[in-house]
Design a protein around this nucleic acid. Sequence first.
DNA 1: TCTATGCGAAACTGAGTAGTTCCGGATCTT
DNA 2: AAGATCCGGAACTACTCAGTTTCGCATAGA
Lengths: 224, 224
Amino acid sequence: MTLDAIPLEETHEETPKLGRKRDHTRDPDILDAALDVLAETGYDGMTMEMVAARAKAGKATLYRRWPSKGELVIDAVACMKRGDFDRDHLPDTGTLRGDLVAMIKPHAIEDGARKMRIMAGLMSMISRNPELAEVARAAIVEPRASANRILLQRAIDRGEISAHSDIDNLALLSQSMAIYRVLVLQKPVNRDFFIQLIDGVVLPAVGLGRPLPPVDGSNSAPDT
Amino acid sequence: MTLDAIPLEETHEETPKLGRKRDHTRDPDILDAALDVLAETGYDGMTMEMVAARAKAGKATLYRRWPSKGELVIDAVACMKRGDFDRDHLPDTGTLRGDLVAMIKPHAIEDGARKMRIMAGLMSMISRNPELAEVARAAIVEPRASANRILLQRAIDRGEISAHSDIDNLALLSQSMAIYRVLVLQKPVNRDFFIQLIDGVVLPAVGLGRPLPPVDGSNSAPDT
DNA sequence: TCTATGCGAAACTGAGTAGTTCCGGATCTT
DNA sequence: AAGATCCGGAACTACTCAGTTTCGCATAGA
């Protein structure tokens, strides 16, 4: 390989005239495989061979489509299926608590757990790759956060909670604490955890919840 | 390696007979260098040569003292100087808000930011190395969390807040949201952020500072 | 059927790094 | 000063992995 010139092909190639056309049918499988490996081993632990093996593809196929490992990961995160809740499919039960609880579906929890593992795998990269950071934010954290913001805003609009509630922080609360719990504390994030968060923190913070002053007699919790 | 806490005084063999005795004088420098590199590049990006260079030591010196990169990191995190607040040096201002605000010192913020960067660098490792996870929890997370728990419990004891407050989650709230903010959102975690968290979420959740109409930033004084 | 084309598999290259070894010099003890 | 020991630096080994190339096969259009 001493010479690098002499490109012998090169008429222009925009004509899929014969043979199978370039269809990129396998892309979704490869991207999904990349996300799986990412969740399991983290960015640095992930190798192109792992991704290829899991997608039952060849390494060459990966490089035909993406110029580098970094690009593949960015694409995988960016194309991640935005799960759960679009603006139009949010629960609307009439009460804030009803809406928040309705967001806790088994599928949503499971999906969220995978996203958190992916996020963990991206962590060290995110802090030094702005593009990846932006993509991860848009794909993983923003959908849920904005859903919560909408739910809270509705509660304000219908007069259920104070108009001065700290919506921005409250919308991020459950996600923040869930990530912290699963990544740092390594405890399970399940339905009970979210319910506890709603009833023990979010609703009280917004003027709805439990922690009533002990002077109240009606709520006779059998003391501590 | 023994993950038993605090190997301060070592019981290593008593043979300081001749020449310079094995003093391990450089250990703190090396461990601190390791933490710096960890915070900057993450576990996988960190190389033994970086650590050696920053500590102005030789790679051989590192391997004389620690058998592997993994052990060095675990030791570095375990020996991390527990900063800020011991049980005996907690603020005690008489009000929950006063105590919480008193926890926000410039030094504490700066120290916390470094710890978060270290935590980010450990993330992907933590999820598959239980020993590291335990050490990181004990060194980075637990001190602050237990300080918050104590402050909240005091407020309960003096009748300032409801005895049914969700202390466990509230104690983790500011940390969770700070980590999320700095690692995921990549926004600055400063004094204003913590104040907003206290006045906008924690105190309301506990029945104190209701969200006040005027948005004047000086204070949202809890009651009175 | 024939032929162009994309694909999976595997071999290969090159770079970077964990971990080792060796040596000259610095430092402490006697 | 002499002797023992540790240290920093540099060279070295062994291995892993990103990225490339090659090749035979499968498929789709003609």
